[in-house]
Design a protein around this nucleic acid. Structure first.
Lengths: 231, 231
DNA sequence: GGTGGCTCTTGATAAACGTCAAGCAAGTGA
DNA sequence: TCACTTGCTTGACGTTTATCAAGAGCCACC
């Protein structure tokens, strides 16, 4: 029975409240594929033929222009990406590549748009998802325009700590060069920024980070929910 | 008859396809207000009590952090702003102030959410609107992260020209200091950037801009729909 | 017809950030 | 085990951008 396929995504906000019929309509044309590390899944400018959902592994969304490249986001399970392009039937604005070995569920865009038309619960879920994405993007812009690179790094580290219940020791989730690009700086500058945060109790060894004086770091970084809060 | 009120917004994408009943439900609690120039309409962090729609004049959306401030966007008639906060019932992420004398239609957020629940055409229109906002925000991030300030200015000027059917003479729509902030630089740097674009045929006198060699400017700016296109 | 306030511009200087080059450490595979 | 690769770091240097200060032009308002 088809409705028992893809149970791992059934709990995702996009699908939680939709009817079994709608879910099956989406599942019918969908399939799961395994990708090796560093595989480019989509390229900016292409037509948005499939909605992508990361089941395991992770995907880096990045953009290029004139031989420059920047990391826009990293997508972890279970999350959909390029929803906006899919629903509007527009070309991708970002490219995506796998980081590690990654399982992706691919749902044909026309099916997504069809169910979106017929199932108002699905439409509502998409509104919530898009509004969250939009707000996250606005926060990202604020972060970029209002803060220096040191401040962005400091706030990023605090965010990492918050995510793990204020744990003061944690591992960076991906390579420093990618982190640098995500934060809008060069790897060299990230390295120097880590050094510049030593007076605020930031200790780095490889991927491992220790925040020895969170108070002091917060006093420097001045995080706010209006930039650093989760949506 | 209430449905004859607010006819000026009936053609807006958000309301074009909704039922008369839905429109009246929105119109019932809505009202129009006139604001003088430089009036702060909303402040970031506040609860999103009303959906705002600019009927005439214009509104600057801006953000602040630690005594720094940056312009995020300018809203022209007829457009809604802070839709995402309204629909998600979250605090505003941006502040808004009138530029000139401005007429605003205010729709109680709870009414927007109620009609959103009951009218699937309205929900669909909101999806389209949010997806466009999101994609515009992604483009803005790409612009900021991938380009220098000179390149951003050059592409902005080309965009202005495009908007007026490739007219080579046009007026800047708002003060240079606001433009500078929007483009992510200081007024001083904007002034110098204009000078730096002289070799590409950019002539500025007050608010008036002349592009004397569009080819050359385009060759420098390298615009692309994936950053500079309208949604 | 000033006078104050504002924006814009320009110059000098400083800070932030990027680029280039070299070297180190860890991991990989023959 | 030994190259070989890859990512990270550091130093030197250059570019980009911000800051501070001063002055010019413009407009509104007495």
């Amino acid at each position: 029975m088809t409705s028992e396929r893809f149970t791992e995504v059934r709990g995702h906000p996009l699908f939680k409240n939709i009817s079994d019929g709608s879910f099956e309509a989406l599942a019918r044309g969908a399939y799961v594929q395994n990708f090796p590390p560093h595989t480019e899944l989509i390229s900016e400018g292409e037509a948005a033929d499939f909605l992508h959902i990361v089941l395991s592994g992770s995907v880096e969304l990045f953009c290029s222009w004139e031989s420059r490249e920047t990391t826009m986001a990293t997508v972890w399970p279970v999350s959909a990406f390029i929803l906006a392009a899919t629903i509007r039937d527009r070309p991708y604005l970002m490219s995506g590549r796998t980081l590690g070995k990654t399982r992706i569920m691919l749902v044909p865009s026309q099916d997504v748009r069809a169910v979106f038309e017929s199932d108002s619960e699905f439409a509502k879920a998409i509104v919530a998802e898009l509004a969250n994405f939009y707000r996250a993007s606005i926060k990202n812009t604020k972060n970029l325009k209002l803060r220096t690179s040191k401040e962005r790094l400091a706030n990023y580290l605090i965010k990492c700590s918050r995510r793990e219940e204020n744990c003061l020791v944690f591992e960076l989730q991906y390579e420093k060069r990618r982190l640098a690009s995500y934060l809008g700086m060069t790897p060299e500058n990230l390295s120097r920024s880590f050094n510049a945060l030593k007076p605020f109790g930031v200790q780095v060894d490889g991927q491992k980070v220790r925040l020895e004086d969170l108070e002091k770091l917060i006093a420097f970084a001045k995080p706010t929910d209006l930039i650093d809060g989760y949506e």
